[in-house]
Computed example of a mutant assay.
Amino acid sequence: MTREEKSNVIEDLTARLAATNVIYIADISGLDAEATSNLRRACFKANVKLEVVKNTLLSKAMESSENNYGELPSILKGNTSIMIADTGNVPAKVIKEFRKKSDKPLLKGAYIDEAVFIGDNQLETLASIKSKEEVIGDIVTILQSPAKNVVSALKSGGGKIAGLIKTLSEREG
């Protein structure tokens, strides 16, 4: 690869890193062609972009980026693949599901909305992170709950009040 080609790859990687807040770094070495194809298919279905990258080029792209990747450049050893997604927990769920049949991919680290996670032991934590949409849904549910209680009380209380008024008006008459 010429110096110009490397420069172009670094620029491209830097642009892709800048365009997302969710990056997983994994090791998929040792997977045979069929398993790799199945992993790529699972990523595609989950809207996760999977790409094998050179460590030095990814490291330089991270340095060029405005994001702070913390210790992530230090884990760029051996075979490296990046998984880029729109939702923070989706790549972790893909890895977790895929590992039911295989011991790979191994999670090296992740960058999610400025938070850095290092090590395969973080997989459970990452898979349980709620997406923005899930958090908004939880908030809406919480906010709707008191309103539903008030409406319910008014409906049931309204019948009692109407009954009391009717009974009182009948007594007076």
Rank of each mutant, 00 (worst) to 15 (best):
N121D: 15
L57N: 10
L13W: 08
V140L: 08
K49E: 09
M1D: 15
M1I: 10
A92L: 11
S131N: 04
D12Q: 08
E66P: 00
E172Q: 14
L143P: 13
S152K: 13
E133V: 05
G119N: 08
D120M: 05
N79V: 03
I129S: 00
I112R: 00
L50T: 07
A153C: 08
Q122L: 02
L72Q: 06
K160Y: 14
G78K: 06
Q144S: 12
L31I: 13
D113C: 06
G163F: 15
L123T: 11
E133I: 13
C43A: 09
S37K: 15
K6T: 12
S7C: 03
I82Y: 06
E114Q: 15
P105T: 07
P73G: 07
V116E: 15
S7F: 04
A115Y: 09
K100F: 00
L107R: 07
K160H: 14
T36Y: 07
I84N: 09
G70S: 04
A18R: 10
K96D: 07
D113V: 08
S145T: 14
T20D: 01
K104A: 07
A85S: 11
D27P: 07
L168Y: 15
E11Y: 02
E97V: 01
A33K: 03
S59W: 03
L106W: 00
T36S: 15
A33C: 01
A92D: 05
R3L: 02
K101G: 01
G70W: 12
L13I: 03
G163M: 11
A92M: 04
L76Y: 00
V135E: 05
A18G: 04
I112F: 03
V52D: 10
R99H: 04
G109P: 10
L123Q: 04
K54D: 03
N8F: 11
S169Q: 14
D12V: 05
S65K: 15
P91Y: 01
D103Q: 09
V22N: 05
E66S: 06
P146I: 00
S81Y: 00
R99A: 08
E133A: 10
V150F: 10
S156L: 11
V9A: 12
K93E: 14
S152L: 11
G30K: 02
T2W: 02
L143W: 01
A85H: 08
V52C: 08
M83T: 09
P105D: 05
A61F: 05
C43K: 01
A46D: 09
K77E: 10
L143A: 11
A42M: 14
S81A: 14
Y69C: 06
Y69D: 02
G119R: 02
S145P: 03
L154T: 13
V90K: 02
V94K: 11
V48S: 01
N68S: 13
K77Y: 06
K101V: 00
V90A: 09
R99W: 04
L72A: 08
L126K: 09
L164R: 04
K93Y: 02
S59P: 10
E71Q: 10
E124A: 10
V9K: 15
A162K: 09
K166E: 15
A85I: 06
T141S: 15
A162H: 03
T80A: 13
